[in-house]
Design a protein around this nucleic acid. Structure first.
Length: 431
RNA sequence: GUGGGCGUAGUGUAGCGGUUAACACGUCAGGUUGUGGCCCUGAAGAUCGAGGGUUCGAUUCCCUCCGUCCACCCCA
């Protein structure tokens, strides 16, 4: 009666299969080590939050909030949203747990799934994972530089090269208004020449005209007013100090260079002053590997005391794509210690017992499939990438021994007494 | 949300308006007496993405949907 349904993963989401896990783990480990090297501590926030957190935090007019959120009402009628980005939740947690009582700045990192209802394509998924860092409670440009340095170190540790760093300062909210007005006036003079996508943006988000991909608009952007010319004295000072600090990084990172780009703006409302983006110099569209900036207004917007913050997010999937494109990561699954080859009911029972004892010695042991021929089990051991085959048949049971055969290197098969300590001693423990 | 390419066994591919849809890898089983990797033999595995249409007949042509990839949008 019921139609048979073949389920597939929903659009834009993916399984991370066992063969993918080695790369994933290598990248995550690199991320964690890098963050720790800068004194950042891990934080995990819930996968869903109250919808209002993102409406207020990310900004109600942003594309993320307008059309990309997975929002739903729970059974109690509460509107919840699958986390589309990591900064607002971390700031919520900072406020909720009174982290202003900790030594400032509070340095936090996370590796977590993010959800955005978006049309999938290479490097863009409805569920993707971000490695992110947030430094909250310090307005000094040294922290801006630190956040960018984490990116450099991360990219370097992954063996990636040809990654371009662009930075800009979009100023403070006080100066942004007059900047936006001037920007709007600049483009408005040529409004009739603008493509309609950009004409729409003119009112709504003039900043976005700056990074428009439309050639007609780009031509106008070249001599558009620059946010850097509108900085308050304080923001100007912050910006200049940041550049000095970044120049200072060149001794530790000889290949590091950056470019200030007055067309760099970001799509989340909470940013002020410093914004930056890392992208590979190779062609492609979904290229932003690492991006972020300063968000001094955010904690206040979310109801906390005015507290400065700066951070970044970096997409794990995109990083993996890039390491594969550059073949910069050489990851291989290490061999397993041993596969237990056992023929005969008594041998199987004894082999299972021995395997359990060997695991007490820290050895990883895989049972070959029971009831199959010895040849089949040996083939299994080979495919399992095992260092040793431990062979137990009726002959071994009678003599109280086990045959131990090295599979990964040349060497003779040894007959050892059927004793876990003896065998464990012969096989090097996993660590 | 817009535009374009693609959709054949687990994976990667071939194929053609017409009888049993091919190949490689992988899987499973063998290659005599209990031992892997190479090699050899055999087997299983595909309603040719789904639905509809054109046709005597479609996996092959057309439409819709779904998925995927690319570009836009946006962003990580």
């Amino acid at each position: 009666m019921a139609e048979q349904q073949n389920y597939r993963a929903p659009r834009g989401v993916a399984d991370i299969l066992p063969d993918d896990q080695t790369v994933w783990n290598a990248v995550k480990k690199t991320a964690i080590n890098t963050a720790r090297q800068f004194g950042y501590q891990q934080i995990d926030t819930p996968v869903f939050e109250n919808t209002g957190l993102f409406r207020r935090g990310v900004g109600n007019e942003t594309d993320i909030v307008q059309k990309e959120m997975y929002s739903f009402d729970d059974l109690g009628g509460e509107s919840l949203t699958l986390r589309p980005e990591g900064t607002a939740p971390v700031c919520r947690s900072y406020i909720e747990h009174g982290m202003h009582n900790l030594p400032q700045p509070v340095r936090l990192y996370y590796i977590a799934p993010m959800f955005r209802y978006d049309r999938p394509q290479a490097g863009r998924y409805r569920q993707h994972h971000q490695f992110g860092c947030e430094a909250i409670g310090d307005s000094s440009p040294t922290i801006d530089a630190e956040i960018i340095e984490i990116g450099l170190r991360y990219i370097t540790a992954l063996g990636l090269s040809d990654v371009a760093v662009r930075i800009n300062s979009i100023g403070d909210s006080e100066t942004r208004t007059s900047y936006n007005d001037d920007l709007r006036n600049h483009y408005a003079k040529y409004a009739n020449d603008l493509p309609k996508v950009d004409r729409d943006r003119l009112e709504r988000a003039p900043l976005r005209l700056l990074d428009s991909k439309e050639p007609a608009t780009q031509k106008l952007s070249a001599d558009a007013p620059k946010s850097l010319d509108y900085l308050s004295d304080e923001a100007q000072n912050h910006w200049e100090n940041l550049l000095v600090l970044l120049d200072g990084l060149k001794t530790a990172y000889p290949n590091f260079s950056y470019r200030t780009d007055h067309t760099l703006v970001r799509g989340l409302d909470y940013y002020n002053r410093t914004v930056f983006e890392f992208e590979p110099s190779t062609e492609g569209s979904q290229t932003s590997l690492f991006g972020g900036g300063r968000y001094d207004p955010l904690i206040g917007i979310l109801g906390g005391n005015e507290t400065p913050g700066v951070g970044f997010g970096s997409g794990i999937e995109r990083i993996i794509l890039e390491t594969q494109r550059q073949e910069s990561l050489d990851v291989a699954e290490p061999p397993r210690n041993a596969v237990m080859v056992h023929v005969g009911d008594n041998a199987t029972i004894r082999a299972a017992q021995l395997a359990a004892e060997l695991r007490n010695h820290g050895i990883s042991v895989l049972m070959a499939p029971a009831g199959k021929s010895m040849r089949a089990q040996m083939r299994y051991a080979n495919r399992a990438n095992a260092s040793y085959a431990i062979i137990i048949g009726n002959r071994e049971i009678e003599q109280g021994v086990a045959a131990v055969k090295p599979l990964q290197f040349d060497g003779d098969q040894k007959t050892l007494s059927l004793n876990s300590a003896t065998i464990a001693n012969f096989i090097a423990p996993s660590e």
